[in-house]
Design a protein around this nucleic acid. Structure first.
Lengths: 251, 251
DNA sequence: TTTTATTTGTCCGTATGTATT
DNA sequence: CAATACATACGGACAAATAAA
């Protein structure tokens, strides 16, 4: 029998067949293809669909099981577990904790590290300070129900917010750290969104598998006079978060 | 010599080493790591950095060359080509062509297919019509300078926009198709953004390699009375596009 | 111009992992 | 649990192109 090309599997792409198939099935689940049945087709049916051997499909399903997306049991098939993708609002009043609050989950910010640095060109332009001017850096991990969903790198101008990292450590919230320093309110000025593969460090913190995807959001927050107070680079775990941009931008 | 773990390459992940290294280098380029030199370190230096053989690094560089990110030449090293990531604005007045217009590129929309369908739950909720009600579907490809950057699936309520696909074929623009049907203006109501691996069909149209990433934007447009006129699912090639959300939402 | 060092490109062979039959 | 085919990864050797001495 001659081999015919099937369902988009590619043997010379540097990605193992079982991983390509795992990715495909993950997408199909996300598209709701098996929602009615609540479970995947049998291994033999999947093997035919992708034009591969049943062993290869088993490797793919094992990977999905490892990610917590499906659960296979002998005699019962491969059950699709509930999707738990969070919707993170992006608006003038974007805040991490309140953004996830409505979704009946326990949001939490955890301190990772902080320090002092000279502003790079990028940071300086965003904060409207001179390149090389001092800024406070703060790294934090966002969790929902104990599951990591975001990894954030914040920058604040030192001249105005020296010691804000200590406030964050106590308050576990950027909003409350600002409040403790006398800034009662602030607004989101702009957000730049892109997507890419996570690097190793990001995969570790966000508990992603190799090939895992992050949504990268570059955000500028300003006080009510329009002066930039914060520049952040936040990496969201793409499998667990979507970003929602509403254009009715009031409160 | 015993092998030590290096720079985050994982030999049991189903992703070939050369592809992991290509992803790493792509990220490093994006982070500006080699901006000063304008080129990558030599193959031997990279091989040491990742703890692999020189040939493996060569395979990674070949992949990046194929993507148009770098160009290697004997005796000269591996030059990093200019970044060409487009910035797609998301605002109340989001339109494909004008959004890319400011970036000195030739934007173009190409008709792929169209038809008539019954509204799914998702489409019906977005367009505020009854589930199962008829809607016009339209699929189009967005290009910038001939390079595919987006693949879009549009839905319009048939009751109001029957035949809009024919207008799109002539006008090659949703905005102009709306205008031709008497709708002079419309605004973006909401946009939901997520990221995932592209499936095979998407990879073909957007000319992506396996493992390629798309930004998926679910968008609702409405007329000035607030009645939904269009629901779109647009897949942006994540390597070529970032989405920019400004919160100064007027014009 | 010639020489030399550096860097990429190509070839060989071998071992291991992946996928099928 | 084989036998087979192919992709991946390694190691070494040498050729070709380039830049600098």
């Amino acid at each position: 029998m001659t081999r015919t090309k099937q369902a988009g599997v590619d043997r010379t792409s540097g990605v193992a067949l079982w991983r390509q198939i795992a990715d495909d099935i993950r997408i199909a689940i996300g598209a709701g293809e098996f929602r009615e049945a609540g479970k995947l087709p049998g291994e033999i049916a999947l093997a035919e669909r992708f034009g591969v051997n049943r062993h290869t499909v088993r490797a793919a399903i094992a990977a999905l099981q490892n990610e917590g997306i499906v659960k296979a049991r002998p005699g019962r098939g491969t059950e699709i577990l509930d999707d738990i993708r969070l919707k993170m609002p992006i608006s003038r009043r974007t805040r991490f904790s309140s953004g996830l609050g409505g979704q009946a989950r326990r949001p939490e910010s955890v301190y990772i590290a902080s320090g002092e640095a000279s502003a790079s060109e990028e940071v300086a332009a965003a904060l409207r300070i001179a390149p090389g001017a001092p800024c406070v850096t703060l790294e934090s991990l966002g969790l929902a129900d104990g599951i990591p969903v975001s990894l954030a790198f914040h920058h604040f101008p030192t001249v105005r917010f020296a010691g804000i990292d200590e406030h964050f450590r106590r308050e576990r919230s950027v909003t409350r750290a600002f409040a403790a320093m006398g800034l009662a309110d602030y607004v989101r000025v702009s957000t730049d969104i892109s997507a890419r593969h996570a690097d190793e460090r990001e995969r570790e913190w966000l508990r992603l598998t190799p090939g895992g995807i992050v949504l990268e959001a570059l955000a500028i927050n300003a006080d009510l006079d329009g002066a930039p107070v914060q520049y952040s680079r936040t990496l969201f775990s793409a499998g667990r978060v979507s970003l929602h941009v509403g254009t009715d931008m009031e409160l």
